[in-house]
Each structure stands twice: as structure tokens, then as C-alpha cells.
């Protein structure tokens, strides 16, 4: 597999490690009244689409960027690759 790194161009997937669903970025608020339930859902409930999937990949042997890779898990086509920090900010995460 080849992941088109937004800063470094096409790189072999051997340089990366995989974490999982990019929804892990949306970490719940620890002070919410139902925080335990929210964290449970956040950690354990996943969609399993036969198609496009947004995933977190870490360029461990490269520049150590976390990336959000949008990948069709049926065809293996990679549709988009973004820096996870950009995605996180766009989803309202800051400090």
C-alpha cells in the first residue's frame, strides 16, 4: 500500500503503524455528567463500513506525523490523506 503523505508525498505503508478509526480524535469531555458512558461509546463502539473509512495512521519510521487516511476498505483505494492535527483542529480540538 502507498499512503500519499501530505508533506512528503507517496510513502510505502511499511513506514506506518495503524491505530484505528479516526473517530478516536473526538475524545469526550471528562466533566460531562455521563462521561463514563460517553467514554465507553467512544472507546468501544465502531462503525464497520464496507466502503470508505477514516483511519489514523502514524508515520512512525518517517516524520512521526499522525495522519487521517480516508480509505475504501473494499477496493483499498486511498481517497484522501490529511495531517491529523489539522483534522483535530477542524473538529474543534485545541488544548
Amino acid at each position: 500500500m502507498i499512503i500519499n503523505h501530505p508533506l512528503l508525498g507517496p510513502r510505502d505503508s511499511q513506514e506506518f503503524t495503524y491505530l484505528g478509526d479516526a473517530s478516536l480524535i473526538d475524545r469526550p469531555d471528562w466533566q460531562a455528567p455521563d462521561a463514563v458512558d460517553q467514554f465507553h461509546d467512544y472507546l468501544y463502539l465502531r462503525d464497520n463500513p464496507a466502503g470508505e473509512h477514516r483511519e489514523l495512521w502514524f508515520h512512525e519510521q518517517g516524520d512521526r506525523s499522525w495522519l487521517v487516511v480516508t480509505r475504501n476498505v473494499v477496493t483499498h483505494e486511498i481517497l484522501n490523506v490529511e495531517l491529523a492535527s489539522d483534522v483535530a483542529r477542524s473538529r474543534g480540538r485545541s488544548k
Binding site: 480524535i25 489514523l56 512521526r64 492535527s85 483535530a88 485545541s94
Partner: peptide
């Protein structure tokens, strides 16, 4: 290796600013 990866994950994906 795993702790370093985890810390980068927290830094980049959870608290990017």
C-alpha cells in the same frame, strides 16, 4: 516505542494546540 507513539497521538490528535 509504544509510549512515545501514544504521546505523539495525544499531542497531535487530542490537544493539537
Amino acid at each position: 516505542v509504544g509510549v512515545y507513539r501514544h504521546m505523539e497521538y495525544c499531542r497531535q490528535c487530542l490537544w493539537p494546540d
